[in-house]
Write a protein that binds this DNA or RNA. Structure first.
Lengths: 215, 215
DNA sequence: GTTGCCAATTTTGCTGACAATTTTCCGGAT
DNA sequence: ATCCGGAAAATTGTCAGCAAAATTGGCAAC
């Protein structure tokens, strides 16, 4: 099944399942029967079990005593909460990024800014979405905050479905592009307070959009 | 061993081990040999294994392939990062708490304020420390943000050792009491911005103290 | 005294089988 | 037709044992 010939370890299974859930291959509320997964991935049930335990701690899977596991279904209210937490954390990262930005960081961010502008002009939603994500990742990387970075990543995994839905909304780029440009400007100007506030405003607007679109 | 006669489940073992680590019973870098733990708790090695996996995702335990698990040792730099993340998250909670505070919440917080003032006057460090923690918990509860709450709790578990060390520093209450009173005032006045900022300032000062005390 | 190597021991990673629990399904009574 | 009880099936929870990897200790060579 996996082409390597050898059986999969618990860690590898956790990665595979995480990817399957985040990518939407496994849909919310879908039951995750240990025996079935073991057969599908050609792994032992024991390893499937520990993988599910780990994903449950990560918040991607919900387990009930003696009743098995299922893909956790995140409600709109929870998605809003998650985005608000992300707003607080990424604002922190933006602040640190503004403080620590090197010249090469700045040129890279500005390059991203022009590429995003072009993508919106061309109506290339795919490119814009990639740039969008790249900006967030770059700023998180610049902040060099490992704790914040891993927490944000975990939360993003939980709410990815809503992010995705939002990105496909017409007119959304027109709202978020100037926000992203403001973030980039503040970070490049080493203005920590403005960077944090711009990031917070941006993600709060995402939270509002989630509230509105699924109410 | 546990008095119930029955063997312990994986979930119970995770709780026991978590408590043992957070309470300091198991010290940082201490090796966690699966067989030994199984014997000590009267559990099977398989369940110990699952518990260690979960605690590893929580960040309390460090696992290396084929080399076992040990209690994660949090460096000063990490403790500072963790506290900065807490600052961002608890500031969010303080903001929400200020928006949602009911009359009974307010009287409860003001009661805590007077008790903390009394404790400092009497030099009763124990009472002050309890009140301190109660304020943070109350505000988190008032915010009704489940995502933020669980994230904060997980982070606190990782950095509890440093919090503890700090609380025992002479003169620390004199610094933190006015900060706590400012937080309580802002929340009770329904001033969301001020509450968030007061909380952020408070925990940033904790971060500074950690930086200074262990540099 | 130090270094390098090899066997013995320890410890982890994994699997299959067994026990306990929950769910499903079916026959009968109302 | 509906509801109830109980056996059968499905599924989860647990355990003990085996294989693989790492660590340890001893022994010889330099």
């Amino acid at each position: 099944m996996d082409g390597t010939g050898r059986t999969l370890t618990a860690a590898e299974l956790a990665d595979l399942l995480r990817t399957a859930i985040v990518s939407g291959e496994l849909v919310p509320n879908q039951r995750l029967v240990e025996g079935d997964l073991a057969a599908e991935y050609g792994a032992s049930r024991g390893n499937i079990r520990v993988a599910l335990s780990e994903l449950s701690v990560e918040g991607l899977v919900e387990r009930v005593q003696n009743r098995g596991a299922r893909v956790r279904s995140v409600s709109v209210e929870e998605a809003v909460e998650i985005t608000e937490v992300r707003a607080a954390l990424e604002a922190l990262c933006a602040r640190k990024a503004a403080e620590r930005a090197t010249d090469s960081d700045i040129t890279e961010l500005q390059d991203l800014a022009t590429r995003m502008k072009d993508a919106v002009d061309r109506g290339d939603r795919e490119s814009y979405s990639e740039g969008n994500q790249a900006v967030h990742e770059k700023i998180i990387a610049m902040s060099a905050q490992k704790t914040a970075a891993s927490t944000i990543q975990r939360l993003r995994g939980q709410a990815v479905r809503f992010q995705f839905r939002l990105a496909r909304q017409p007119g959304r780029p027109a709202v978020s592009l100037p926000q992203h440009l403001a973030i980039i400007d503040a970070v490049c100007a080493h203005d920590a307070d403005a960077a944090a506030e711009a990031m917070r405003v941006h993600l709060e607007s995402v939270a509002d959009a989630i509230r509105a679109s699924n109410k």
